[in-house]
Design a protein around this nucleic acid. Structure first.
Lengths: 173, 173
DNA sequence: TTTTTATGTCAGTCATGTTGACTTAATTCG
DNA sequence: CGAATTAAGTCAACATGACTGACATAAAAA
């Protein structure tokens, strides 16, 4: 109650709290990526491949430019991993019908299989954490996470089960 | 209320919810690291340097082996960035008094200065997110984050302002 | 018809991770 | 005490995934 630190120096607690947030994000991300990394190594793939497979699986028909927007990397960086995934039969490209310059990305059955394996481990981690924490904590978690994400991308998370907004091209394939 | 998806297919909502968690973590981490990356570039440093500076600043006297434990990388990977930071006067090493094999790491004044700059941007992001979300949401956030982190490292986050457990060597310098 | 856009490619570079082998100094164990 | 273990560091070779810059092609838009 009258803890000397919180009473005399309220900023001390604040800084401690914020640092714990910083560290939690570091450790959570570190552990969150460790299992998929091991699976990917079987295929001689890395985290970059995972991100492509995940977001293409999540947004079938995604255009290359939209994927670049999500990943925030250059097209030269993307092209290596995307090229591999296409050549090795995990991702398929289809030219757009409206705009034939655009290449819409889809997972092949093989791609879906890998996507499932990878997502299962991460979804399992979330399922355990959510279950242990309870619905109210999950709501708080979502609120804070949204606040940590740059405003531009928050709209991706409107609604919980319904329509799935954002990301998709307005007039896509 | 009687939404067809939640009523007829409860697992659909669950999967959607878990995927949103996965994506939030991806976007939060992406945005969380972007600003420090720009500051580090001024010094010709990268994320690896940031991690060393952060954890040494947070745990003065940390031993090399403990840092490796936190970062989960090999000592060869660490040695490159740590060597640079020591040579360029951001980090100082002191041999232990009890066990003279151990090198205890400390930030120099210069190191602290950079640490402050880097941490301020990330702490500011957390401060804004926490403030907007409210105390209850923050509690939920912490609970879920803890559940996402491998059990081994959860002890680091016991207590909010007080003693700061974990990490430090039992009989350190 | 000209310009812009979407995509792809080539070439070179850098940061950061890996494995494996080996050294040195100090502590601990039998 | 002597042998084994531990903490740290080093050298070499390599892989991944970022980057910049320059250029090419096809299709759409102005």
């Amino acid at each position: 109650m009258t803890d000397i630190k919180t009473a005399a120096n309220p900023l001390f607690l604040r800084e401690e709290e914020l640092r714990q947030g910083i560290e939690m994000l570091f450790f959570a991300y570190r552990d969150f990526t460790a299992e998929p990394d091991r699976i990917l190594a079987e295929y001689d793939y890395g985290r970059a491949h995972h991100r492509v497979i995940y977001f293409v699986g999540r947004n079938p028909g995604l255009a290359v430019s939209e994927l670049l927007e999500i990943l925030q990397i250059t097209k030269q960086s993307l092209s290596r991993v995307l090229g591999q995934l296409v050549r090795e039969g995990f991702v398929q490209q289809k030219a757009g019908t409206q705009d034939r310059r655009r290449r819409h990305l889809h997972l092949t059955p093989r791609g879906y299989e890998l996507e499932r394996r990878l997502t299962e481990t991460q979804a399992g981690r979330f399922a355990r954490a959510y279950r242990a924490a309870g619905a109210e904590a999950v709501e708080g978690f979502r609120t804070v996470m949204l606040g940590l994400i740059n405003e531009r991308d928050r709209a991706r998370f409107e609604g919980r089960g319904g329509e799935r907004p954002g990301v998709r091209a307005p007039r896509g394939d």
